[in-house]
Design a protein around this nucleic acid. Sequence first.
DNA 1: AAGTGTCCCTGCGAGC
DNA 2: TGCTCGCAGGGACACT
Length: 273
Amino acid sequence: MPELPEVETVVLSLRDQGICGRRISSVAVHWMRSVQEPSVEEFTRILKGRTIQNISRRGKFVVMGLSGGWTALVHLRMSGRLFLGRPADITKHDQVLLKLDDGRTLRFHDTRKFGRWRLTQDPETVLSKLGPEPLEPVRDFHKRLHAKSRILKPLLLDQTFIAGLGNIYVDEALWEAKIHPQRKSDSLTTSESDALLKAVRKVLKKGIRNLGTSLGHGKANFQLPDGESGRNREALNVFRQTGLPCPRCGTNIERIKVGQRSTHICPSCQRKH
DNA sequence: AAGTGTCCCTGCGAGC
DNA sequence: TGCTCGCAGGGACACT
């Protein structure tokens, strides 16, 4: 499940492989709903002939700046991947294909078909709704936690509160900060809020260093654009570690439900009260 | 305002 | 072996 570190890894990798400056020579959309806006016809017509000028990340969005003032926003959701490869590599679940002028093809591969592309001249309409970037200076984190009375985990997953976190890194951060996911956001002390933000940064940076987390058994859900998979899975402390000893205290990790999401905690380190 | 339920999808593991 | 079934999960949206 691509979260901030996985999206960052994809962006850096595509940039590293020289995607910037390449011209899109043709476009093919195999699953219509992979394109959220505009219509598939317009999407294809507008993209064709444009140059990819830059690529970056905002929250979990891949942001591609194109010639002529257009921007492509790609959200990978559950299973989306972006590969740069030869046309011969094309496989079953490639939903959107951009053929480039150097002979390579940018492939949007998405087995579960939840991923979405948007092509817009005003990306801020979408991006301005996102909360702050956790790896940049975050102002008034404690104050913002106390401005609401929300259950902590769903709040951290809310992209308008803070951008880029998903199920994996929220569980890891809450464990790191020794805070129970069902605590109310306005119950945290200032030192707990500080510890939480530090923990969020720590787990995200570690995820990026490890080139992302690949899950699944054998088949990686997340892969780098060149087909390699991240190695952060081995670095996880609680996520999908149910029944295994907590690396800090040895108590068995438990799996609970918080807001319909499976959640992993150490019942000794993370107390509700 | 905060929380719950439903939908979108496919692959996988469990149970028979 | 081969089938069905339920689950996972980010985000949008309707509803309470």
